[in-house]
């Protein structure tokens, strides 16, 4: 009996979850993304050709030693494809929540948020 109740409860919860509504996805202007963004010692740089570079001065790494990636921004989905020199790629997908001329905010699927401000190139 207990087992039956458990299953029922699970099913009810599952139906609630299944019926939840999806929010309409926001579209951001990717041209605003072009430039250098800073969050503490962490930097991202987006170029118009879809490439970019990132570095963290806190780790004694500077812009000329930055690691490259490619990027796409589709609606609110910002995808970084980090390309390994040894072969292989590391995709990172984020959801942009704010993109202005001065501010960039996004988060990943695990709820980790990032906030950047634009700095002079």
């Amino acid at each position: 009996m207990k087992r039956t109740l458990f299953y029922i409860t699970i099913s009810v919860l599952a139906s609630f979850l299944a019926a939840s509504c999806e929010m309409e996805e926001v579209t951001f202007d990717e041209s605003l993304l072009i430039g250098k963004w800073q969050s503490g010692t962490l930097y991202y740089k987006y170029l118009e050709d879809g490439t970019g570079a990132t570095w963290d001065e806190g780790d004694d790494v500077f812009e000329d030693e930055a690691q490259e990636f490619t990027w796409t921004l589709v609606k609110s989905e910002l995808t970084h494809i980090h390309i390994l020199e040894m072969g292989g790629t590391v995709p990172k997908v984020y959801t942009v929540t704010e993109l202005t001329a001065a501010t960039l905010k996004y988060h990943d699927d695990f709820g980790k948020s990032f906030s950047f401000i634009k700095v002079n190139p």
Partner: peptide
């Protein structure tokens, strides 16, 4: 596994540079 990173002079991983698949 393909992994790459930069290390400091004591071979400590600079975690901000760590990439791997």
């Amino acid at each position: 596994i393909a992994v790459e990173t930069y290390l400091d002079s004591l071979y400590n991983i600079k975690k901000s540079t760590l990439r791997g698949a």
